[in-house]
Simulated assay, not measured.
Amino acid sequence: MLEQQYRTRQDARREHDFRYDIKNSLNTRERRRGAVAEVYEWVESCVIAVGVILLIFAFAARTATVSGPSMLPTLRDGDRLLLVQAGYHDPQYGDVVVIDRSQKGEPPIIKRVIGRAGDEIDIDFETGQVRRNGQTLDEPYLNEPTLTRRDVEFPVTVPEGSVFVMGDNRNHSADSRTREIGMIDLRRVMGKAVYRFLPAGRAGEID
């Protein structure tokens, strides 16, 4: 009788252990599936984020690198800039823009918009003052007054579909004062520079 009771208890224990092992195995599998699902979701989120960034840079924004001293003190040689492209079709006074020069086999240039279609631009190279439609411009961004004359005769009127641009480092800038560059067709404006992201120590919005 005692032996039978002992065997019954042993059988019950083995059945309990068997059920426990099955349950534990199922729980382990569920945990593994949960971990795999979590990793998959994380990877999927990263892929989507990268895709969004690529789309933004392809259609809405791009980067540019400053070359040379023509935009001192605002921008320095080697600065890396973020440009706005999407919907930017009407440059405003003071905008810093990147201009495509690929049609002449040359790299882009970065300048500031001084005149728009219909504006009369005049420069007094004795005083260094720039006038737009008879009004002397307040230009706090300049490195020095505009004293260097190029090969364009002033005053000039900006034609339709164009802008007149100059660098902030006026006496060391090739810009709309030269016939080689001249008035800039709006179709050649690649975008507006809005943010400097490198070097990190000088990162910030562009005035």
Results as ranks from 00 to 15, higher is better:
Q4T: 11
Q4R: 09
Y6R: 15
R7Q: 15
R7C: 07
R9N: 11
R14K: 14
R14Y: 13
E15Q: 12
E15T: 10
H16S: 13
R19D: 05
R19F: 07
D21T: 12
K23Q: 14
S25P: 03
L26Y: 06
N27Q: 12
T28F: 08
R31H: 12
A35P: 07
V39L: 15
W42H: 10
W42I: 14
V47I: 09
A49P: 02
G51N: 01
V52F: 00
I56Y: 04
R62A: 10
T63H: 08
V66A: 11
S67R: 15
G68Q: 11
P69L: 08
L75R: 11
D77N: 14
D77L: 08
G78A: 05
D79K: 07
L82S: 03
L82N: 07
Q85N: 09
A86Q: 13
G87H: 01
Y88I: 05
P91I: 02
P91C: 01
Q92W: 00
Y93H: 12
G94I: 02
G94D: 03
I99W: 05
K104Q: 15
K104P: 01
G105R: 06
E106I: 02
E106M: 11
P108K: 06
I109C: 05
K111P: 01
G115Q: 00
R116S: 00
A117K: 00
D119T: 01
E120K: 03
I121C: 00
F125I: 05
T127D: 07
G128K: 04
G128C: 04
G128P: 03
G128S: 06
Q129E: 09
V130R: 08
R132L: 08
R132G: 03
N133F: 01
G134A: 02
L137Q: 01
D138T: 12
E139I: 06
E139T: 09
P140M: 10
L142K: 06
L142A: 08
L142F: 13
R149M: 09
R149P: 03
E153H: 12
G161F: 02
V163M: 04
V163P: 01
F164W: 09
M166T: 05
M166L: 15
N169S: 09
R170G: 02
N171E: 05
N171F: 03
A174W: 15
D175S: 02
R177L: 10
E180Q: 14
I181G: 00
M183A: 05
R187V: 04
R187C: 02
M190C: 02
A193I: 06
V194A: 04
Y195A: 06
F197M: 06
L198E: 14
P199T: 05
P199Q: 03
P199S: 08
A200L: 15
G201Y: 11
E205I: 12
E205V: 15
D207K: 11
D207F: 07
D207M: 04
